[in-house]
Design a protein around this nucleic acid. Structure first.
Lengths: 348, 348
DNA sequence: TTGAAAGCGCTAACAC
DNA sequence: GTGTTAGCGCTTTCAA
């Protein structure tokens, strides 16, 4: 089976290759009669343009690279859908750069950018990938950061207000009368974790509290981190009454564990999560949390990249910071001092 | 920032473009001194070859398309890792075609193949994708089917022996004395389901039993299908003693539900699953099941495609059928008629 | 409205 | 060992 080239179609239709090309890319530039003639030839021959040749000639690949730490993470998956929606609309394809949490896999995608297999890059990593020698930045391609701000004039940030929301979480608990706080962390060292913890501390300071008053439990962004935090919590004699978990999974883990020891939520302890995953609305009691606008984030990031690629904006032109929505549900409530003390006697 | 081309490097090193190309692709063909000279120029200029131009010239994209029904399915995820291992070794990249269970998404990937953006295709779909007008087959690209056999001389099958294993499952239960069987299906209409049910029926026939003796519960490949099957099972007066579930998830759902009604596994009912997912070894009791050689499947499929691309084999040359391994664990055992009857009186 | 021709950046014959 | 040169298949001036 021989490859069909544009010249074959041109010959079949009795026109030049230029005309065939015009019919396929901009039909209005061609007489109706010619158009029909060419389309018939295309159909008869089963011609599809060779995309590599198109790319070389137009110097556009119509592909965008999306680099993510780990695909199975539902947060990234949902963001990716937003990206997909926007990009598909603009006729762009997506090449997924899945790091699978291993930094050595970055090199591959740096090379992809350097060798111009994509027209732009969306970073869900929080940092700029490197291949040992060179950074993706050197590709000169438009890049948009979509997971924590990257401090680089050439890279617009389209992010969620993690820090602000974390601060608001503390304010919210403080307004309910809470004075003693617990913080369940996410993956130590990750950008998201440090943003959220930073916001949490800001909230503590704003409430006029000392950092000595808080308890911090460390662990990755998973259910069991919350369970471990709960174990520690249950051992304490002076328990915090307001718990902020850096992700819903650990909030849910925490609640499940303390409830099994007859600690009441929210009467004895208020818990607020982060992310607004689907499950948070199905738990008993339903989880108070911040909903991340992931789909919007995906769309906004992709939209920004499109503008950058089309040179409709310059990198410094704007930084988007999307707000999170507080979902006031049933795991938070006012402090009830008496109940809390009697409970402590009963369960310790 | 101007693009650096091979001519720039050539000028910088004082050699021809052909020499630069040789240094980069086949260093042995060039004198050591020239090699060093060129490499220095490459480093100084920060040159990376334009991959689109390479592709057009060599007529190879060094990319393979992998089409999968749904990425979040752990079965596909694990197969994909095997594919990745093999392909990376050969210097090939992967373009993931995720259908997300929506057939209309096929078109995109058919076009990808037709426009020659890949050198070959790995199908985890069980059928050949189409775009409404044309089939991926018309691309003329090498294709390998890795999920149920596709009956096409041009497409080698590298598959797992679903049918045989299902038959063996029944044989195994029959050997333990079971005569009354239940079948918990997977997604109705899917190729995998029909293969497994087909094998199950073969086993029933081979055991000299009638199809009237069996109970079949329908539902997708998920946990809740097993739970629903269990509800139905619990209502029965003449319960089957041997249950074959078309996937581990539903086997686990079934077991969990019946155990909560004091039905003992395996004393009252034997259950055998399919796939050998990680969880199957963590349940209580541990699940008897067939382990799918997913990683090997991925490697074998990718290896076959590589051979096809390199023209080291013709499509009809071989069809691989990988056997599944029976993991005899704790949810299967001999029939105990007496216990079973007394139990029935107690729980109904 | 259409055609001729140049050239995107690279590799691989072929010649030296 | 190295250079010269002819394309890979397409789009896009430019001229008619």
């Amino acid at each position: 089976m021989k490859e069909i080239r544009i010249a074959d179609v041109a010959r079949l239709a009795g026109v030049s290759t230029a005309t065939v090309s015009r019919v396929l890319s901009d039909p209005d530039k061609v007489r109706q009669k010619t158009h029909d003639l060419v389309m018939e030839a295309v159909r008869r021959s089963g011609y599809t343009p060779n995309s590599t040749a198109q790319k070389l000639r137009t110097r556009r690949t119509m592909n965008v690279l999306v680099v993510a730490p780990r695909l199975t993470n539902p947060v990234f998956a949902e963001t990716l859908r937003g990206v997909d929606d926007e990009l598909t609309q603009s006729g762009y394809g997506i090449i997924i750069g899945n790091l699978d949490n291993r930094r050595e896999r970055e090199a591959r995608y740096v090379d992809l950018a350097l060798s111009r297999q994509v027209d732009g890059v969306l970073l869900l990593t929080g940092y700029i990938p490197e291949n040992g020698t060179r950074s993706m930045r050197e590709s000169g391609l438009p890049i948009v950061a979509m997971c924590a701000a990257i401090d680089d004039d050439m890279i617009p940030n389209v992010v969620v207000q993690d820090r602000e929301a974390s601060r608001r979480a503390v304010e919210y608990l403080a307004r309910l009368g809470h004075r003693k706080f617990g913080y369940i962390s996410g993956t130590p060292g990750s950008i998201i974790e440090s943003e959220r913890f930073g916001g949490f501390l800001e909230g503590i300071a704003a409430a006029g509290l000392s950092q000595d008053e808080i308890v911090r439990w460390e662990g990755p962004f998973v259910f069991s981190t919350g369970v471990a935090a709960a174990e520690s919590f249950l051992q304490m004699t002076e328990r915090p009454t307001g718990i902020f978990a850096a992700c819903d999974e650990s909030a849910i883990g925490f609640i499940k564990r303390v409830r099994s020891e007859r600690v009441r939520v929210p009467q004895d302890v208020s818990v607020i999560g982060f992310d607004g995953i689907e499950l948070s609305d199905y738990t008993e009691p339903t989880l108070t949390t911040f909903r991340q606008p992931l789909h919007e984030l995906g769309r906004a990031g992709a939209d920004t990249l499109m503008k950058l690629i089309r040179k409709e904006m310059k990198p410094g032109d704007w930084n988007v910071r999307l707000p999170l929505e507080l979902l006031e549900r049933d795991t938070t409530g006012p402090v009830l001092h008496k109940d809390y003390k009697s409970l402590r006697r009963a369960t310790i």
